[in-house]
Design a protein around this nucleic acid. Structure first.
Lengths: 203, 203
DNA sequence: GACAAAAGTCAACGGCTGTTGGCAAACATG
DNA sequence: CATGTTTGCCAACAGCCGTTGACTTTTGTC
């Protein structure tokens, strides 16, 4: 409509299909996040996107391909170098909570978590996110072995909160104000991040 | 329905059906734990128990009934009153780790966790376990409101470890010796259990 | 307007699912 | 042996699933 009709496809020209492609992807993300991989059907996604199920196959090849496209996660971890050492735990924790508490289009990690518990490929994908984003960030502050160890501890606490608060809705976690939760948990993250850790057994 | 029909049967007398009943239950537990609720089919359970699928229906009514029967969890939390206050965190943590690390028939909580992420009923059941066993245990040491708060924090860390180590198999968690993990995490549990917690915002 | 590619619709396939009811063997009891 | 109950297998149902291929409509280019 905007560009001239005679011009060949410019790089910025958006195809008509890109719209439905995005619609499918949005619907898929919502479904995967709410119901997990198994209980999300291509038919339901197509219905939510108001198109035919076969379109999903055309654009994404298979249900697995759709999931792969929908589950791209970027943690967008902040650069902790600019934060005073004593406040890094709280800063990191606030970052996660803010992501989850915020607008409902951003929590792809919940999507991934819900599916990874039963789907092996989703688990590997979550493992990759953990490795490439969290471990790498910590590697800038310490050796690779210690980074892996600290990252594991942080992941256990952060994912545990997400699990209990957003998936299981445990009463002691789900009904607390975000700020209180941050206050309670920040010392833990701080210790995992910068505190002194006990010596490991030989390895 | 479950009561014996004839009064002549001695109390210790075991029916023939009790054997297959137990076989079904064992197979179901293994399947539910390994694949979660959705990917466990009654047919697969029946095949593993070497009986007909219709038998499962006869004994447990439905797939949901089977799951309910298979997912009975008793955390068997130790009485922390007999443990020195400073070691209670470690004691509680060791208890959980020992349960999971031990023989492969005991980890019903992993079963429940894997299913609770997608199945609402399983989630409610896990919520009940959390409430009736963990919160109640802590209530003996503090007021009910504080107990709920501390229980939530403990659950987030403990379930987070179970999630990362046994379900997702994150490299920083899954490949560490149990003793090392206990050493790293014990201070956290200790703080959640007995440490001083920041003031909460009004509620 | 003619024509080709893209975008979308429709109906169907084979497979797996939970669940049901009928019927055959095993068994205990008179 | 005759009886009724328990225990079990078999075949089938209705439904949803991912996926496919043929067909029609829209769109863009000459």
């Amino acid at each position: 409509m905007t560009a001239g009709t005679s011009a060949t496809a410019a790089p910025g020209r958006e195809r008509k299909s890109d719209r439905t492609r995005a619609a499918i992807l949005n619907a898929a993300r919502a479904q995967f996040q709410q119901h997990g991989y198994d209980r999300t059907s291509i038919r339901a996604v197509a219905a939510a996107a108001e198109i035919d199920p076969s379109m999903v196959m055309r654009y994404f090849g298979s249900k697995e391909g759709l999931f792969a496209a929908a589950a791209h996660v970027d943690l967008q971890l902040p650069n902790l170098g600019g934060v005073p050492v004593r406040q890094r735990g709280q800063a990191l924790l606030e970052h996660f909570i803010r992501r989850w508490e915020g607008d409902l289009s951003d929590d792809v990690l919940v999507l991934l978590l819900r599916s990874a518990v039963t789907d092996e490929r989703a688990a590997q994908r979550l493992q990759a996110v953990f490795q490439e984003q969290l471990v790498d960030t910590l590697s800038r502050m310490s050796g690779p072995e210690e980074a892996l160890r600290r990252a594991g501890l942080i992941a256990s606490q952060v994912l545990g909160v997400a699990l209990g608060r957003y998936l299981l809705r445990l009463p002691g976690l789900a009904d607390r104000p975000p700020a209180d939760l941050v206050a309670d948990l920040a010392p833990t993250i701080q210790r995992y991040l910068t505190g002194r850790l006990p010596a490991t057994t030989k390895q």
